[in-house]
Design a protein around this nucleic acid. Structure first.
Lengths: 246, 246
DNA sequence: CCGATATATTACCAGCGGGTAAGAAAAAGT
DNA sequence: ACTTTTTCTTACCCGCTGGTAATATATCGG
């Protein structure tokens, strides 16, 4: 999330491969540029309708050049998915680090997750079909999904235990909440009238108002804004891959 | 056109094309058999991974035979989708015919919709990608989706107006509810531990408890069972297509 | 300026899968 | 029984797209 020192002092053009410009940027930057282009196309048109030629063309290169960075189309898909998974993971890590009741943590998660669903890599979490991945990578993805689901359930269970959440079935409640959130990734449009933060705010109240023990409980309005530098201890920015290879 | 009487008195085997049996059933029955086989495969493996050969094979016929009933693969997809849309439409029609407060009707819709998501044709509503359709058919599908969304919003707005629902933004609330419901189509498994009616019951309370004006309002427990096809009264069996062609 | 290495290109292949043409085999009509 | 019509099969095509080989061009260390 807050990794990679923004950029060397130079303007960041959309594509590092300007037709005949200095194409000497670091390998990882190019890799990421491929992912950004790919995730956008995949979301726009759907994985199967996007050809590698299209991805390459958008980057001013040709198809085989992609194979310097990825083993194949499905690996690109997986890496896009992983980017989203890492975002969620870092959100969860941060919430876990902080305190609060079960309900409070649940609300933080709902808010952050809703906002994530309005981003490309976030949406890719729910719009890509894991069956397009190799069995190995699909297993990694399933595991990550399971962790996320478990987190929702744990916050709910914790909330019931500490009295901040009304008794309910955590499994089904988590499905309901996660479902409403995931669906954002399907209907949200950048050019629409609703802003990501607006959606996140509204969903936070809407999805938890029925669960809270006190009807008008104080809604901790702590929008994390810029994450303070104070998490210097845990989570080093360096390549914290979720796992998965081919 | 729709002269075909419902069915000759005989048992309905899974496939009307038993290897070398009497293959003289009515055309529409075969058409539907294709759709049932197709929707199952599409959900199992995903549209793009299913070949027409596979569909045909499961029916003990060969690929070109399918072209006697459909113009192409994408039309089969659309017809599957339409089956689901018709189910939802009939649910809505039925609820509209009955009375009740906005909240009461919303709850009926949530309950019926949740149950639908646990069926093949119901799930196809949210698991199929409309971009695989021709532009013409996609437009029909979008229109149907819009009608469904509008219904959710209307019930909410009605509920706010008649005082059964707390004031809220109907648009976002509808998105939240519909999202949670639609997601069922993605995680529900026939062989799981949760029953469709159990899910429907739970979701009905979970998704509306926060909206109700009175916390413990009487939950009208009128399970309308499965919306049986061939409901003799309304919706004449004759090709009441949603629209759409190629 | 010169090899070595990373990076990109041109040209190509192979398989898959939707779709079609032509004709066999049932069903239905007469 | 013979024709007509519907239904289904065998055989085929062809375009598309992921992936590869061989080669060219930067980039960099020296």
């Amino acid at each position: 999330m807050d990794s990679a020192p923004p950029a060397p002092p130079s303007s960041p053009p959309p594509s590092p491969w300007l037709p005949f410009e200095s194409r000497r940027r670091a390998r990882d930057e190019k890799r990421e540029a491929v992912l950004r282009a790919a995730v956008q196309l995949f979301l726009e048109q759907g994985y199967h309708r996007v050809t590698l030629n299209e991805v390459a063309e958008r980057l001013n290169i040709t198809k085989p050049a992609l194979y310097n960075y990825f083993r194949g189309k499905d690996e690109i898909l997986f890496e896009c998915w992983s980017m989203g998974a890492e975002l969620v993971d870092s959100v969860i890590t941060e919430i876990n680090a902080g305190g609060g009741s079960g309900l409070a943590r649940l609300r933080k998660l709902v808010h952050a997750y809703a906002a994530l669903m309005a981003t490309d890599f976030g949406a890719s979490l729910v719009r890509f079909d894991l069956r397009d991945l190799t069995e190995r990578n699909a297993a990694v993805a399933r595991a990550a999904k399971k962790r996320i689901d478990a987190t929702f359930r744990r916050y709910l269970a914790d909330g019931i235990a500490d009295g901040s959440v009304r008794p309910c079935d955590p499994k089904l409640a988590a499905f309901a909440i996660a479902g409403a959130l995931n669906w954002i990734g399907h209907w949200y449009r950048r050019d629409g009238t609703l802003s990501p933060t607006g959606i996140a705010d509204e969903f936070t109240v809407r999805l938890t108002e029925g669960l809270a023990t006190e009807s008008r409980q104080q809604m901790t309005k702590k929008t994390p804004r810029a994450p303070r530098r104070r998490n210097s201890g845990r989570k080093p920015p360096g390549k914290k891959r979720t796992g998965g290879t081919r």
